[in-house]
Structures are given as structure tokens and as C-alpha cells.
Computed example of a mutant assay.
Amino acid sequence: MAASLIAVLAALAIGHLAPSLAAGLRQFGWFRDWLRWLNAQFPEGSLWRGRVGIALALAVPLLAAGLLQVALDRPLLGFVGLLCDIAVLAWCWGPRDLDRDVAAIIDAPDAHARREAAARLWPVGEPVRMDGPSLVEAVFRSALRRWFAVLFWFLLLGPFGALLYRLSALAVDEAVADLPPDTASGARAWLAVLEWPVAQLVTLALALVGNFDSVVGAWREPGALGLHTRVLGHAARASVRCDIAEEVADYAESGLTPTTAIAEVFGEMPELRDAMALAWRILVLWLAAIALFVIAGWVR
């Protein structure tokens, strides 16, 4: 776990201190070519064109990753394995920088540029919504897919887990994959399985760093624990709304109007700024928890 924490911090540093290097590293064109090759090889009625076809797409690259992970775990007292951990995690993180995408929305000079920037937070083909609550949900969905899910599966299974999640997410990305209908349906179901525990843990962390009552309220909604639930998005909306209301109420006591209070505290697009701040707080909380496990000696 100590090595995993070092790898996470190093991958984060690479993304922020060398963004061009990170962007150049995070290329998955080979996976798109692999999916196209499978499409060309298997006819209608084959296993590839069924709901479990995604397993064929993942099996070969993940087998190679697993063998490499085992082979590099021991040499030089694990140092080679640590370098592998850093490289694979930095590769699977993102692939776009969430901070830069959110900043591009806030700093956009006009409504058209703002909508174009916001489109980077939505999956390809999904309509872009510019209202505050929708942007909050988009930030947290992006944080889940770019940060937390990769981190969770990396901590659980090492580089194999990080690559497992990233390739599974790419398989449902219409910009990367053009899968047969049944294969795409199976890929979406598989991705939902991978994301479910992560969404619950992020929601729990949101309750700790945000508004506890609003998050618990979202968890109590019917079907909140279902596989395809949007509990994280609902909890994020409620938490951001409560946080802004509390900040505005504090400033209003000094005589400021609500509109002026929002401008004083958050500037433009307050929901977006607060959502990004909450996402960072959750990430710091996760890293602190990992560090405490290492210090306490509960895990190796």
C-alpha cells in the first residue's frame, strides 16, 4: 500500500507538473484498432456480438498487463514494479485533465465557447446542459471516471485494475468504440458493475467533506443503492446547493444581498467552482485514508 500511495502521488504530480507529457502518454488508439479488428473477424451470432463479447476485447490486453505486473513485482526489491505502477496509473488517469476542463468553462469568453468547453464533461452524443445542477453532476461523473474509479481499482488490483477500468470505460465511449448493439449493452452493464462500489465510496466521502444531511437524504431515495443509480449525482447536487446557501446566508448577515453574496464568495458559475472544490476534498480524503493505513501498519 505504501508503494501504491507513492505511485498515486507520482501520477498526480506528472499530470499537474508535466501536462503535455501526460497528454502524450494517455493514448489508446491501439485499443480502438483492436476493437475494429474484432468487429471484422467475428460474424453475426458469434460470441463477440453478444453481451459477453466485451470479455474478448479485454482478455488479451489484461492478460498481458497481469503477466507484466507479476514479472516486475520482485526485481530490484520492487523498484521496477513501482515504476510500472506509476507509468500505468499515469497512463490510465484522466485521460483529460478535469481541472483544466472546468477552468475552461469558467474562463470562457462567451456562451458559445462556454458550451463547447462544457461538452468535454459529457459523453459523446449526450446533450450538454448548462444549468448549475447539471454541471455539478457532470463534474462528479467526470471525477468518478477520470480519478476515483481508476484509483479504486488500482488500489485493489494494482496496474491490472487501473487498466481494467480504463479499457472498460473506453469500450462504452462512442468516440472510441463502435461496438455491435449487444456487445455495447454488455459493456455498459460491466462498466456499471465496476463503478458501483466507487460511486458509493465517493458518496460516503462526500457526506464527510460536504453537507452530511443532504447526502444521507439522497441515499434514502428509493433505488439509491441500485446498480444504475445516479445517487452520486443527486448527492452532489444537494450538497453543493446546501454549501452555497450556507455561505450566502453567512455573508447576508453582513448586509449583502444574496446575489452580491454569491459574487463575493464564488464569482461566476458558483455551482461549478464548489463542485470542483468538493471533488478535490474527496480526493485528498482518500489519499489521507491511504496514508493512515500505511502509518498504522494495517496494510503492507
Results as ranks from 00 to 15, higher is better:
Ile6Arg: 07
Val8Phe: 12
Leu12Val: 01
Gly15Ile: 00
Pro19Lys: 01
Leu21Arg: 08
Leu25Glu: 01
Phe28Ile: 00
Gly29Trp: 02
Phe31Tyr: 13
Trp37Met: 12
Phe42Cys: 09
Glu44Gly: 06
Glu44Trp: 03
Val52Gln: 11
Ala57Leu: 08
Gly66Val: 03
Gly66Pro: 03
Gln69Val: 04
Ala71Leu: 14
Ala71Asp: 00
Trp93Pro: 00
Trp93Gln: 07
Asp101Thr: 10
Ile106Asn: 04
Arg114Gln: 15
Ala119Glu: 09
Arg120Pro: 01
Asp131Leu: 07
Asp131Tyr: 08
Pro133Trp: 04
Arg145Ala: 05
Phe148Ser: 12
Phe152Asp: 00
Phe154Gly: 10
Phe154Tyr: 15
Phe154Ala: 06
Gly161Phe: 05
Gly161Glu: 03
Leu163Ser: 09
Leu167Cys: 02
Leu170Arg: 07
Ala171Ile: 12
Val176Ser: 11
Val176Leu: 13
Pro180Ile: 09
Pro181Trp: 03
Glu195Phe: 13
Leu204Glu: 10
Ala207Arg: 14
Gly217Thr: 14
Arg220Ala: 14
Pro222Lys: 12
Leu225Glu: 13
Leu227Met: 15
His228Phe: 15
Arg230Met: 07
Ala236Val: 00
Ser239Tyr: 00
Glu253Asp: 10
Gly255Lys: 06
Pro258Thr: 14
Pro258Ala: 09
Thr260Glu: 15
Thr260Lys: 13
Thr260Met: 12
Phe266Leu: 12
Met269Tyr: 10
Met269Val: 01
Ala277Ser: 12
Leu287Gly: 05
Ala291Val: 10
Ile295Val: 15
Ala296Ile: 00
